[in-house]
């Protein structure tokens, strides 16, 4: 199977993720879209690893997963805290840090 299909898929996933981040207000959804983008990146890395026949991309993908996991932990905690204080999970409501 042509490996470039995986790249196209990754691009699609990344685009969906990016559009989600930009358009959705719900913090959880935005968060999941970020995960989607990260995984799209992972897919790209693995694909290139396959194409080039090296393991660099695979290793990189593992790093990304580790970072993503850490991010989930911190990110969800922040979202939860915000929800508790503001009774809302909309990212547009957290706009105090400005000017």
């Amino acid at each position: 199977m042509n490996p470039s299909n995986y790249l196209i898929l990754a691009a699609l996933l990344f685009t969906i993720g990016a559009v989600g981040v930009l358009l959705r207000r719900n913090a959880i959804v935005v968060f999941m879209c970020v995960e989607l983008m990260l995984n799209a990146a992972n897919l790209t890395l693995v694909t290139f690893s396959r194409i080039n026949g090296t393991l660099d991309g695979q290793i990189m993908a593992f790093f990304v997963m580790v970072v993503a996991a850490a991010e989930v932990v911190i990110g969800l905690a922040i979202i939860l805290t915000i929800f508790r204080t503001r009774r809302s999970a909309s990212v547009d409501d957290v706009n105090l840090l400005k000017y």
Partner: peptide, 13 residues
């Protein structure tokens, strides 16, 4: 500094 609106999504854009 007005461009720093505080909206995360505009930063993302």
């Amino acid at each position: 500094r007005r461009t720093q609106t505080g909206f995360v999504r505009s930063y993302a854009l």
